[in-house]
Design a protein around this nucleic acid. Structure first.
Lengths: 354, 354
DNA sequence: GTTAGCACTCTCATGGTGCGAGTGCCAACC
DNA sequence: GGTTGGCACTCGCACCATGAGAGTGCTAAC
């Protein structure tokens, strides 16, 4: 028992690496423990199964593989996946055919920004056959670009806010007196002049300058208050939404046949606080992040892996796209796809800030 | 084998009804076949287990109960649930405490219509402990209420459409020439005058009247085209979105432990065509609809039940709220809750059309 | 250092067995 | 005649034993 786990035992020689790769790739497709015979049969390793066995034993001693039981084949450990991922992370472009296909799909919704995120999730799901995730780009702080007031009835109006960051907000306002559209438009114009490009805090200060006694500024003040509140809510909100697609793909994986594990994963995905932390971490890192099993910050996600990439403009608006799958995941493909889609999202966002 | 199923064998006497109710209610909570002893133990039926057994045999002959195997208790058939539901459908108000709680929650988002549907789904899920479903109220045909053009950069603008029905649309427009916000506002005003209250078809006709050669109307024509397209897309779209919450509750049910059945259900929920059909059916009926197991129009839903109610204004805008759960569902509570929430949604929508 | 051979271990599928829950029937009872 | 207690009967299910098969680790030979 004493010398069982000998982690980080120096770099591996090429043959060991090749065998580790083979084990992982075989296990990713078969989902069953891999034996030495299966390896020599299916991979051109140039050595016999006995030799492979001794290498497997070394890899196990190094903590990269494990043994479900004596007479079973080997299964990668999280460290094994980690080693594998580090060794391939910089060299897996998505095949051009698929790139083209994805670009084509995004081209069709290029002018409807509200569809980008859903499409990103759907695309990631269908290409990687895992679950696709995408959050809208959330502005670091919301700046008002324009507001509009639309009369709904005598005493009810809809206030529409357009943010510089591209997001849209609609709130209803009850009016103290019956008010015509013309008057509403005048108020909207006045507030537009005052508040264009302002954040919630700035808007609050500016509106403080209005005469609180003057009945003529009663409506602008009331509307202004709602504007400020909406902007501040926007700043304070965690992630707006998480678009996901293909959760079914993950459900289909044999390791989730008994659904308890999966339930915990789904529950974690509905936990906004967890998501917010995760996403801000990825956004700050500025690069693709791979969380394998228990590397995930949340315990519930210990049985799955995440491949996430940030997109957007640091300091202005950032979002995250990625995939979620079993730890037994096709990492090279996942990383390539996520990298490509995040690049695409960057291009789209850049348009908005051109 | 010949006389096995003797459906619709006249009305049941009161004792049989009581026993059917008891079997269903017991099965709903225990999820296990119910035997005659369990019934006399837990329900004050005033007869012995032998008598209960003979009644159970009659109910089985009538097709309302079934026998998984000789030595097991009884399980309700879909017809059994159907009979049960018909007998209680008109008399199950939601407890006032819960009514108050729900009203309070809706009060907090009263002025943010985009949150209503999500809240409806969440509320239904948490009260019924099944999955909550809600679709936004989809206008029968979209009428433009107002449009706005916001400059994003030299040659890129955002077109914002407000529909009379309360929905919002944003599309990006590329401009042929660098254009200032002032000019965009002027175009927006002009189009607002022309198109206020119009449907896509009407707008198309009106814009046809503009001089196609006049360079001064080039921009209005271009924007107008996008407006028409957006309105028509809106009319043609199936359901915008299906908000759902609490799918986890359904996953937790023992009958879905082996997740294959559930996968099919989830897949059906992602099938827009199926949803559209289902929802329009419910909307047309104008009343609460209960689909039990294979009564569902889609085969994939044969293992679950739906309780759905329409809300909104017939002929103007209608949506659907409801719950999805195992056929072994607490129907009285589900029906009461769905009825209450749909009433609440009606009140909210009425505001918009006041 | 590599390989073939071999004994050993452990899982999984298979089939037999006993228990218990629940029924259906029957004779007795009110 | 409806209701009841008693009793034989039927299955499903949990339990155990068994055997086949897969895969290992070790060792001796190359």
């Amino acid at each position: 028992m004493v010398r069982r786990v000998r982690r980080s035992s120096g770099p591996l020689d090429l043959r060991s690496q090749a065998i580790l790769r083979a084990v992982i790739e075989e296990y990713v497709t078969s989902a069953a423990p891999v034996g030495s015979h299966a390896l020599v049969d299916r991979y051109r390793l140039g050595v016999s199964s006995a030799t492979v066995r001794s290498v497997l034993a070394e890899l196990e001693a190094a903590g990269l593989l494990m043994h479900p039981h004596t007479s079973a084949g080997r299964v990668p450990t999280e460290q094994g996946y980690r080693y594998y991922v580090e060794s391939i992370v910089d060299s897996v472009p998505l095949p051009p055919v698929e790139q083209l296909m994805i670009r084509h799909q995004f081209g069709q919704v290029e002018y409807a920004s509200e569809h980008w995120f859903r499409l990103a999730a759907t695309t990631l799901a269908s290409v990687t056959r895992a679950a696709g995730l995408a959050t809208p780009a959330k502005p670091t702080s919301a700046h008002l670009r324009r507001l509009d007031l639309v009369s709904i009835s005598d005493r009810l109006a809809s206030l529409i806010l357009v943010l510089r960051e591209g997001a849209l907000r609609q709130v209803l306002i009850t009016l103290d007196h019956p008010t015509e559209q013309d008057e509403l438009s005048a108020v909207a114009n006045r507030l537009n002049d005052l508040l264009d490009g302002r954040t919630g805090l700035e808007a609050e200060r500016i509106l403080g300058g209005l005469d609180a006694e003057d009945p003529a500024t009663a409506l602008p003040r009331k509307v202004g208050e709602r504007v400020v509140r909406a902007l501040q809510e926007f700043d304070g909100a965690a992630i707006e939404e998480l678009f996901s697609d293909g959760l079914l793909n993950v459900m289909a994986a044999p390791e989730f046949a008994q659904s308890e594990k999966l339930r915990r994963v789904f529950a974690a995905l509905e936990n906004r606080a967890y998501l917010a932390k995760l996403i801000s971490g990825v956004a700050l890192s500025g690069r693709i992040c791979v969380f394998i099993g228990s590397e995930n910050p949340a315990e519930e996600m210990a049985d799955v892996s995440l491949v996430l990439a940030p997109y957007g403009q640091p300091g202005r608006a950032v979002g995250v796209v990625g995939v979620l799958g079993p730890t037994r995941m096709a990492y090279p493909q996942a990383i390539g796809t996520v990298r490509f889609v995040s690049g695409l999202m960057n291009e789209l966002i850049d348009h908005l800030y051109a």
